[in-house]
């Protein structure tokens, strides 16, 4: 219905729909991800944690959210 307000981004390699105009902090809240346990890249650039609120996501943005997992 309200498709005008939806923007498609690439999230961790897959298409993902977000509400247009949300910032990175809001995306993390939506995904239930704690920001102190991840690192984020938007369009190939690492975003510092204190800039999440200022970073408004746009259509076609490529977002990568990574965490630590077990490894050798």
């Amino acid at each position: 219905m309200n498709n005008l307000n939806v923007a498609k981004i690439q999230l961790n390699g897959n298409p993902y729909e977000i509400n247009d105009g949300i910032n990175l902090n809001e995306l993390l809240n939506m995904l239930k991800i704690q920001k102190n346990k991840v690192a984020i890249e938007v369009n190939g650039e690492i975003v510092e944690k204190n800039k999440y609120t200022n970073l408004i996501l746009n259509k076609n943005d490529k977002v990568e959210i990574v965490k630590f997992i077990g490894g050798g």
């Binding site: 897959n14 630590f68 050798g72």
Partner: peptide, 19 residues
């Protein structure tokens, strides 16, 4: 301890983390 960096699984919310 050594740890690896990988993508978060977006579809599985609230999954336990190594941390």
């Amino acid at each position: 301890v050594t740890v690896a960096v990988r993508r978060v699984n977006i579809l599985e919310k609230n999954q336990p983390l190594l941390m």
